[in-house]
Structures are given as C-alpha cells and as structure tokens.
Amino acid sequence: MAKDKLTTRKIVTRVLILTALTIAMVWALLPIVWMVLSSLKTEAGMFSMPPKFIFKPTFSTYAFMFDEGNFGQFLNNSLIAAGSSTVVALLLGTFGGYALARGNYRGKKHIAFWIISTRMTPIAAAIVPLYLIFANFHLIGSTFGLVVAYTTFNLPFALWMMMTFFAELPPDMEHAAMVDGATKFQAFYRIALPQVAPGLVATGILCLMFAWNDFAFASVFTGHDTQTIPVAASLLVSQTGIAWGQAMATGTVIILPMVIAGLAVRKYLVRGLSMGAVK
C-alpha cells in the first residue's frame, strides 16, 4: 500500500514538473515562432483575428526585401562590421590572452578588473566620447568607426576568454617542447594553440554575436550606406507606417544565424556570457 502511494505521488510530481516546463517553453518560444510564422504570411494575412497558426506560407516578403530594398547591402554591412571586429579581437586577444596566462604578471586582479569593466561599460556612456573622436577624424557613417566601436567590447572579451582557456592548459607540454629546442612562441603556436581551438571558435562566435546584435552603436555611427540590419529593422517601424511583415522577416534573418551558431557552441555559452565566472 505504502509503496503504491509513493509511486502515485512520484507520477504526480513528474507530471507537474513536465507541465510547468512546458508552460515555460511556450512562454519562451511563442514570440519567436510567431515572428517566423508572421514573416511567412502576406501583410493582410498577418493581422487576421483570431490569429492563424496554419496557413499557406509565402516567401514574398523576403523576396521583396532582397529584390526591391537594399537588404542584401545591409546584411553585407553587418557581416563586415561584426566580422572585422571579431577577427581583430581574436587575433590580438589570443596572443595577449596567452601572454597573460603564462607570463608572471603582478596585479592580475587589477588587470582582470580593468578588462571586465571595459567589457561592461554602458554603451550609452561609450558612445559620447567615441562620437566626438570619430567626428574629429570624419569617421561618422563609416564602417571603420563601427569596427572600432565593436572592438571596444570584443577585444577585452576575447582577451579575457582566451586567457582563461590557456590558463586551464597544464604548461608541461610546452615546457617539454622548449626543452627540445622550441622557442616560446613555437611552443605557443604548435602546442598550446591547437588545444584551445574549440575555445577559440566559441570566443569568435560570441564576439560575432555581440557585434551582430548591436543596435545602439550602429544607430549612431552608421550612415545610409553603412547601416547594419538591426538599424534597418528599427527604421522599418519608425518611419511612416509600420511594415510589420518586413520587420518580422528582418528579425528572423537577424536571429536565425545566431541561434544556429550559438547552439553550435552552447557548451561554452554560459562561460562566455558570465565572463568566465561560471564554467
């Protein structure tokens, strides 16, 4: 009897847990699903009440954006700006991160603090001086300025992440290589670097994501020709009339690659988003 009762209780608990989780999933996913569905509807079909979940999808909104609008150009701008800052951050961050991990630098706590507060600087506060400096050098509206702006948060991030990845490697193999005559740089390049490759890729994807998802910097620093897709998305709803169909399609294009890339490195996601505090 007693055993039966316990089992019933267990089943009830399981059902409750799964129900609660299902509700949470619906809350998390419904807006995303609704956005993707809406982007596949005709502008008239989007607003039918009650809302339709089953309908004949059309790619006409996407076709229109690429054929009639400058959407391809905006996509290109986003890729160049996010990509360049990622390459710069990874390159400098990997060398620097290795040096920080292996070198005997005093005051690591202070370096940590400087790097983290740089990474976490409020965007609004960073925009003001960067705007003045860019204005002096005629960089407002240029992709170069935007890349510099993105590097202000991606470089400290990459430096910090790569330091934590290198610091986790036992240095023995590098020492052995150096005893065998390799220079310190060769030990880094041939022994340490290949071992942190997954971490390097994850860091790169997160840098790409931070820059790709930015709106505030791009809205101030880009001009008509250099506008990124988040800015294009915002203009769709702030100009006369709201083109919700295009806005939803643009939103889908913005998040889809990041979902795929992000899930590919999900093992490192928490580590990246917590600045290495949680592994």
Binding site: M209, N213, A233, L263
Partner: peptide, 13 residues
C-alpha cells in the same frame, strides 16, 4: 536547448 533560444535574440529584435 529550447529555453535558451531567447538569449540569442538581438535586444532590438
């Protein structure tokens, strides 16, 4: 996996 998807959404989106 499903629960983490909103994290990837650009804040402006």
């Amino acid at each position: 996996t499903l629960w983490m998807l909103p994290i990837f959404v650009a804040p402006v989106v």
